[in-house]
Design a protein around this nucleic acid. Sequence first.
DNA 1: AAGCCGGGGCT
DNA 2: AGCCCAGGCTT
Length: 357
Amino acid sequence: MEFSDHLLNWYAKNKRELPWRSSRDPYRIWLSEIILQQTRVAQGLPYYERFVNAFPTVHDLASASEAEVLKLWQGLGYYSRARNLLATAREVSRERGGKFPGTYNDLLELKGVGPYTAAAIASICFQEAVPVVDGNVFRVLSRYFGEVTPIDTSTGQRKFRELAREVMAPDAIRDYNQAIMEFGAMQCTPRNPDCDSCPLADSCVARGTQRVDSLPVKAGKTAVRKRNFHYLVPVDKAGNTWMELRTTSGIWQGLYQFPLLESPPGSVTRGEEPTQKSLLAALSTALGEKDLMVDRLVQFNQTPKVHKLSHQHLHTTFWIIYLDHLPAGRIPLAKMEEKPVPVLIAKFIEAFKNSYF
DNA sequence: AAGCCGGGGCT
DNA sequence: AGCCCAGGCTT
């Protein structure tokens, strides 16, 4: 038996029942694939159910607002996925009569659909013989074939895509692609893979050469940037606050936040808190009002709250600024929760509610 | 080619 | 503390 046969047999016995597995509807497969990009099945599952319920068809999704989609997406991260999701739903609904492209090459034209996602949709929905290459596939192939080329280089990408094509099962591509991913997620895991019960153990190069724990090889290392955030939370005497939309490209684009003052790197470790004056000046600028008539300023958390992302550690302080009144654009405190916000802000709002009310 | 983009779970 | 996750886009 060859490589792909073992995987298909393993899959038949061990596959999980997942909601999108019972469908070949390109809308549902596309939706699940976008949600699962860089996301574990366990984390994405409730979001998939939420989106399918809220938007049963691509036309339903296409008619939603961006804030609505982002609110439903809140907490899942990589928010450009949600913005591209909406853009593609509108493209498919309005320009393509609700019909998704039917081939790998045409699927690539859609926003947010790259080589992996195009291959997944083309193979699962249309039985096109193209191999998926995701994190699981890199790991399974590098271990089984002992391929040591780093996966995060262009030559590595080419090499693994070529290898993936050579060993795929073109006549059972729909199951094969899901099989190799499921196998990587359940059996050939990044840490502590279950080699003892592995049907491929006898012929696995990494297993035979004691290299399981060192494959796949990655060249790059991610440097974590440290930043100091000071959120300015105004509260007026009528119980209003103020939130603004992040329109700049970069982190959390399209989400809402309180006015933000970022202090220079290292300033906090040197004991340099922003002065009260600079905090109020920043708020004044954000609100577009010169005289704020501030009553008092309260530091909500005494030690910075560290919010850890893959590539940034955000040392965050929230300041509650009580003032007489807020200009037009203010919102009632109770409406804070209707806005799509980063998890960091959502956690603050929850804590603030419990202390304020 | 390299950097950026989230949040959570596991070790 | 570090790694990884059913990757893709921007620079």
